[in-house]
């Protein structure tokens, strides 16, 4: 249960991190969102996840915290990619952005 909760917290925190990046917002065609709640969420949620994970014990807790961060990152990335793929005309924008990098 703790692992699932930590995964969910990391998922939201990393999604907030992504929403703070102008490039990702452009790809997903999202308007600029208010930064303060996103910054706060990005900062606080991983700490809550850490607090939860440490209830498993120090070493398992830290390893679980890192592990859930990695897996949640992949899930968040796939979710954001799915959102960006649903936007009309994203393919061209994606290619242009890719070329610009």
């Amino acid at each position: 249960m703790i692992v699932i909760a930590a995964l969910a917290l990391w998922f939201v925190a990393l999604s907030f991190h992504a929403l703070l990046q102008a490039k990702l917002c452009r790809i997903m065609a999202l308007p600029v969102l208010p930064h303060l709640p996103l910054h706060l969420g990005r900062l606080v949620l991983p700490l809550v996840a850490l607090w939860l994970c440490l209830r498993l014990g120090t070493v398992p807790g830290v390893l679980t915290w890192f592990g859930t961060a990695s897996v949640a990152g992949i899930i968040a990335s796939l979710a954001l990619t799915a959102i960006s793929l649903r936007q009309p005309g994203r393919r061209n924008l994606g290619d242009r952005t890719a070329d610009a990098l």
Partner: peptide
């Protein structure tokens, strides 16, 4: 490294 942490563009070129 941090700005592109979750960046994945399957719709871009295959190499990208």
């Amino acid at each position: 490294i941090f700005t592109d942490l979750l960046l994945f563009r399957p719709f871009a070129s295959k190499t990208r």
